[in-house]
């Protein structure tokens, strides 16, 4: 049974006094211990989708469709069951640890807060988190716990956040761009610990990122969001050879290759649409090199194709063409410096 099930999730946000749809249609299941990467450009709705899972949306937001955690609807939870769900089943790792950890309380207080809230003895809680700090590579745990957040580096603080998330032994981790705010050298360090802990504990994870390659490296499946729509959901392992949606292929092609030196970086033409700007037809057709008349009129529904799902009218044709043509997105116009 799926641990998490999102069914036609749509989210409306209150903007300038009225509700506007930002996330339109996201459907996926997450099995126990499975990691899915939510990938897309800014405004695609990936962050909102992950926040909906822990019901941490902006004031006035309205959620449609279903979000089920082991069969229980998260949108219908009472205040008390929501609290106990957050205290014991799901934990979120935020993008910017500097802002997301209270600056005037000690690191140790932050780490033990959820356990103590759950009724754990304070001493026992301290013991648990001390052990956790060691597992995320923080050696002098006791000293660190007496320090304040500003005394720790960003990478160290993000590992503290990971330890705090693990402290409640959740079943599901939500990671909202956990390395974006860190500098490049500490990014991989933090990611290695997060990945190792998740795999070691068999936790399910929703990993939000705009770094497709990173998602491929740490996730089992990749769910690609564009303008508030889930356009592709494929196993991470085959994505490089068998990306189904033109948008996914565009994303893969626009990443600079570490080995191949090119005159210009590939980019998807046009600018990324947000969920607010969706019009008739396929959401991606305004930027798609393969768009036909049908694409402009009829919105493709998400359908199964082998072990993946895709929302593209021409997925099969393009897959055939892609195999014979071979190239990695050569069909895209090439521009410099316009990567959205």
């Amino acid at each position: 049974m799926a641990i998490l099930h999102l069914e036609h999730l749509a989210i409306d946000l209150q903007t300038a006094g009225r509700l506007r749809r930002v996330v339109h249609d996201v459907t996926f299941r997450l099995a126990e211990g499975e990691a899915v990467g939510l990938v897309g450009e800014s405004g695609a709705g990936k962050s909102l989708t992950s926040r909906a899972v822990i019901r941490l949306l902006p004031d006035g937001a309205r959620v449609h469709g279903a979000i089920l955690m082991e069969g229980r609807s998260i949108t219908d939870m009472s205040r008390e069951s929501l609290r106990s769900y957050r205290l014991s089943e799901v934990a979120m790792i935020f993008q910017d640890p500097r802002a997301h950890v209270n600056p005037v309380r000690r690191v140790g207080d932050f780490l033990t807060e959820a356990l103590v809230e759950r009724g754990e003895d304070r001493k026992k809680a301290l013991e648990i988190v001390t052990g956790l700090l060691a597992t995320v590579g923080i050696e002098d745990a006791e000293r660190r716990m007496r320090q304040y957040p500003h005394e720790l580096s960003g990478g160290l603080l993000q590992r503290v956040m990971i330890a705090a998330a693990l402290s409640i032994s959740p079943k599901l981790l939500l990671a909202d761009e956990p390395t974006t705010a860190l500098d490049v050298t500490t990014q991989s360090d933090v990611m290695v610990h997060l990945d190792a802990q998740r795999r070691g504990r068999g936790l399910a994870m929703v990993f939000v990122t705009h770094d497709l390659e990173l998602a491929i490296a740490v996730c089992d499946r990749i769910a690609v969001l564009y303008a508030g729509h889930l356009v592709e959901d494929s196993p991470a392992a085959h994505l490089h050879e068998k990306a189904l949606h033109p948008y996914t292929r565009g994303l893969l092609a626009s990443r600079p290759s570490p080995t191949l030196r090119r005159e210009r970086l590939a980019a998807i033409p046009g600018r990324p649409l947000s969920g607010l700007e969706v019009q008739e037809g396929c959401v991606f057709c305004s930027r798609c090199a393969h768009a036909q008349e049908r694409c402009q009129k009829e919105r493709p529904v998400l359908r199964e194709l082998g072990d993946a799902r895709v929302a593209c009218h021409r997925a099969e044709e393009l897959l055939e063409g892609g195999r014979s043509g071979g190239a990695d997105g050569a069909e895209f116009e090439v521009r410099v410096g316009d990567r959205g």
């Binding site: 941490l56 929501l82 205290l87 979120m92 935020f94 950890v101 209270n102 600056p103 809230e117 409640i168």
Partner: peptide, 26 residues
């Protein structure tokens, strides 16, 4: 409006504790 308060809410900390430890304290 601060992010650390959002973190506390997301962790299931009771409202009265959020008020005393995070809102008032800061």
């Amino acid at each position: 409006k601060k992010e650390h308060v959002e973190t506390a809410r997301g962790r299931g900390i009771a409202r009265r504790h959020i008020v005393t430890r995070h809102l008032l304290r800061n």
